[in-house]
Simulated scan of single mutants.
Amino acid sequence: MKIGVIGGGAVGLLISSLLADQGHQVTIYVRRQDQKHMINKIGIEFLSSPDIFQVRAMLIDELQQEDFIFICVKYYQIEQILTVLKNSSSTLIFIQNGMGHIDLINKMDFASTIIVGTFEHGALKVNDYSVIHTGKGKLNIALLSGNELVLSSTYKAIDSLSFPVEIEQNWHVMLSEKLVINAVINPLTALFQVKNGEILTNPHVVALGKQLCKEAASVLQLNAEKQWRRVIGIAGNTNENESSMKMDLKNNQLTEIEGISGYLLKHASVDIPYTRFVYQSIKALECYREREDKDG
C-alpha cells in the first residue's frame, strides 16, 4: 500500500518504520528541509535494534495522494494540517492525545473516510532520523465518519504481528478512556518532572491523580473507579516511560494540554478545579519556557 505519515516526531518516525518493515511504500511528510534531507539520506534508524528502514521523506506542502495518511502531529499543529488535507481523497487516520482535535475535524467537510486512533506503543525521538521503540503495544482504530468498509480494509492492510491493530466500535468511548489516562498521567509527570510510575509512589501525587481522574470521568460520563484502575495499570506498565508532556516541557516545546485538560474544561458543565489548576500550571510553564528561549 501507499501510506503517508504526517509528522516527524517520535510517533511518526515509529509508525513509518513499522509500516515500512511490512513492505508498504511509506512517505513521511515533515516540516523542515533538514529532516527531509537526513531521512532521505540515511533512512529511519531504529536504535532499539540494528535496523534502518528506508522511507521517502517529503515536506508537508508536497503532500501527494496516498491510500492511507496517518496524521501524527501535535494537537496545536492540527489546524494547519487540516487546511492541507481538506481536499484529500485519501483515508485519514488521526492519532493525537486528548480529544481537542475532534472538535476541529468536525468543523471540516471531508469527503474521505476519517478514522481516529489511540497508539499504545512507546517511542522516543533521539534526532531527526532516529527513534527508540520503548514499549510494544497496539493501534486502536474507530470510524469517525465515512465508509465502514474502509475501516475494515484499513485494518486488513496494516494489521500484523509487529504492528497489531484492533477495531473499536465506539470512537467516543475509545478516545474518552484514553483522554482520562492523558488527563492524569501527562500533567502530573510534567509538573513534577517524574517518570510515569513515580506518580504512584507519592501519596500526595496519588491523591491529586484520583481527583483528576474523577473530574475527567465525570465530564466524559465514565465510571471513575474503573478509570482509576486503568490509570494505575497503565502507569505501572509504563513506569519507566517519560510522558510526551514532560518531554515537551523539558525540550522547551508547546504541550498538548489544550487538547487534553483544555478539552475537559471546554465540555464540563460544572467546575472542575483540579483540572483547571493543572491546565493553568502547564500553560504557565509553557510561558516561562518561551520567555527563557527568547532570552537565551
Rank of each mutant, 00 (worst) to 15 (best):
Q96E: 09
I95K: 07
I71Y: 13
I95R: 02
S89F: 01
E66M: 09
F70E: 12
I69K: 06
S90V: 15
S89G: 11
L82C: 00
T83F: 05
Q80A: 15
Q80G: 11
D67L: 14
G100A: 07
I71K: 15
I78W: 12
T91V: 12
E66H: 09
G98M: 00
L85N: 08
F70M: 10
M99E: 03
S89Y: 00
E79I: 05
I69Q: 03
I71A: 03
F94E: 02
N87F: 12
V73I: 11
G100P: 09
G100K: 05
T91A: 03
Q65V: 04
K86N: 06
K74D: 04
I69F: 15
E66Q: 13
G98I: 02
E66I: 00
Q96T: 04
D67A: 14
Y76T: 05
N97W: 06
Q96R: 06
C72R: 01
L82G: 05
K74I: 11
H101V: 04
I102H: 04
N87Y: 06
G98T: 09
I93L: 00
K86E: 08
C72E: 04
N97S: 09
H101E: 07
V84I: 08
G98F: 00
S88C: 07
H101D: 05
I93P: 02
E66A: 08
S90A: 13
V73T: 15
I102D: 02
V84S: 09
Q96Y: 11
T83C: 03
V84H: 14
V73L: 07
E66F: 04
C72H: 07
E66R: 00
M99I: 11
V84M: 11
N97T: 13
D103Y: 01
F68N: 09
G100C: 08
F70H: 10
G100E: 03
I95H: 10
N87S: 04
F94T: 14
L82H: 08
V84Q: 05
M99N: 01
T91F: 01
S90H: 13
K74Y: 09
D103M: 04
Q80N: 15
I71N: 11
I69M: 10
Y75Q: 14
L82S: 02
I71C: 11
F70C: 07
K74Q: 07
S90P: 14
F94D: 10
L82A: 01
T91Q: 03
E79K: 10
T91D: 08
H101R: 08
N97R: 13
Q77P: 11
I69H: 11
H101Y: 10
L85A: 05
I93Y: 01
G100Y: 03
M99Q: 08
I102G: 03
I78S: 03
D67P: 15
S89A: 01
Y76G: 06
H101I: 07
V73M: 12
F68Q: 09
I71G: 14
T83K: 14
V84K: 11
Q65Y: 01
S90Q: 06
I95A: 00
Y75I: 07
F94G: 11
E79Q: 04
F68V: 12
Q65S: 09
